[in-house]
């Protein structure tokens, strides 16, 4: 395999996996929040907090990808 082709394939796989990880991060945060709210009986507070953290984690993936693409 040529060097250019292997680089293209690598980036294709990396960026195509980015969207799924953003969506999953948000949902993981949301479900941790819902679960903790059920445990501690503090209905909307922890759900909102962990949803925010999940969204932050998802967008951190995008930021990391942007940083990586600038370095390459």
């Amino acid at each position: 395999m040529k060097k250019e082709t292997s680089k293209t394939i690598r980036e294709l796989a990396y960026y195509s996996s980015l969207g799924l990880s953003v969506a999953l991060s948000i949902f993981i945060g949301l479900f941790i929040g819902i679960w903790l709210d059920g445990k501690f009986d503090t209905k909307p507070v922890l759900t909102m907090l962990f949803l925010g953290l999940g969204i932050a984690a998802g967008f951190r993936n995008l930021l990391m990808a942007a940083k990586r693409s600038r370095k390459l």
């Binding site: 990880s21 999953l24 991060s25 993981i28 945060g29 941790i32 962990f50 953290l53 999940g54 932050a56 984690a57 998802g58 951190r60 993936n61």
Partner: peptide, 10 residues
């Protein structure tokens, strides 16, 4: 927490 969520998402 962001890092832990990120690793779970992996």
């Amino acid at each position: 927490p962001i890092e832990l969520i990120g690793h779970a998402a992996r």
